[in-house]
């Protein structure tokens, strides 16, 4: 290992320590502890601020002090893997799920996942939405390769957070009465806005099928969903996805380096 790499590893270890530089016989090679504290604080504070910026509703629900403490703990154990801070915090909802003080408030993680999906969709690559009229054109529309647009995400919530989400969006004080109940949401970017919409289970199933089987024909995906749910429900699900602008033709979907879905464990 190069001398530079070895020094940088010790410097990095000191940054990740809880407070002052580790007291060993080579700690002095890292420089003045008060100066080291500035770098440590810069790293920690910038990551807390990145999480606060990414998850404003989560911060509202937790309160600024608890949020900052939780974000600080997350940041210490989950450093970014790349320099784009807009990508940071992908695992924050899972982290909140494991915090014992939030055991009675697991809906907070659902809100956190919705915020993450909105952020990812906002930055995703563009692709033209599939128009329903395209399905009336030859050749056989069942043979079309259809996929979710890159600027879409499905989020599986474990609580009925719809009313809470709307209050948060309006800047109103959150209410505590959030009941358990699985809900699927789709985040879809339309123009400059990202719309978050609760969808029924069949629509979520078709979306998931199309996402997990890229290159498959639309007819095959509809048949797979129709088997448990019926052809009418599958057709309605397709109509919902088309209406939301959530689909595109496979050849029109550019590659995207965004994370996939935000699904609760």
């Amino acid at each position: 290992m190069s001398a530079l790499a070895e020094w940088q590893r010790r410097f990095a270890a000191a940054l990740r320590a809880l407070d002052a530089a580790p007291g060993n016989d080579r700690a002095a090679e890292l420089g003045r502890p008060a100066g080291l504290d500035v770098y440590r604080n810069n790293v920690r504070q910038s990551l807390i601020e990145a999480l606060a910026s990414a998850f404003p509703h989560t911060r509202t629900l937790l309160g600024p002090r608890y949020f900052a403490a939780a974000a600080g703990d997350f940041a210490r154990d989950h450093l970014p893997e790349e320099p784009r801070l807009s990508r940071y915090g992908a695992g924050f909802a899972d982290f909140l799920d494991d915090l014992p003080p939030l055991a009675g408030h697991r809906y907070v993680s659902d809100v956190c996942r919705l915020e993450r999906a909105r952020l990812d969709v906002g930055h995703a690559v563009e692709a033209s939405a599939l128009d329903a009229a395209r399905l009336a054109e030859p050749p056989d529309p069942a043979r079309l390769c259809v996929t979710p647009r890159p600027a879409t995400r499905r989020v599986r919530c474990r609580f009925a957070v719809g009313a809470l989400w709307q209050r948060l969006e309006r800047g109103e004080a959150p209410v505590e009465s959030v009941v358990a109940g699985e809900e699927d949401w789709l985040a879809v970017r339309r123009g400059e806005r990202v719309l978050l919409t609760p969808v029924d289970a069949v629509t979520a199933s078709l979306y998931r099928r199309l996402r997990e089987h890229p290159g498959a024909h639309l007819g095959d995906a509809l048949a797979a969903v129709a088997e448990p749910h019926g052809e009418t429900a599958a057709g309605e699900a397709l109509g919902t996805l088309l209406g939301l602008g959530a689909l595109c033709e496979r050849h029109a979907a550019p590659s995207d380096d965004e994370p996939d879905e935000e699904t609760a464990p």
Partner: peptide
Amino acid sequence: ENHMAAGGP
């Protein structure tokens, strides 16, 4: 680093 998104407004 703030402007390396693949798409969006």
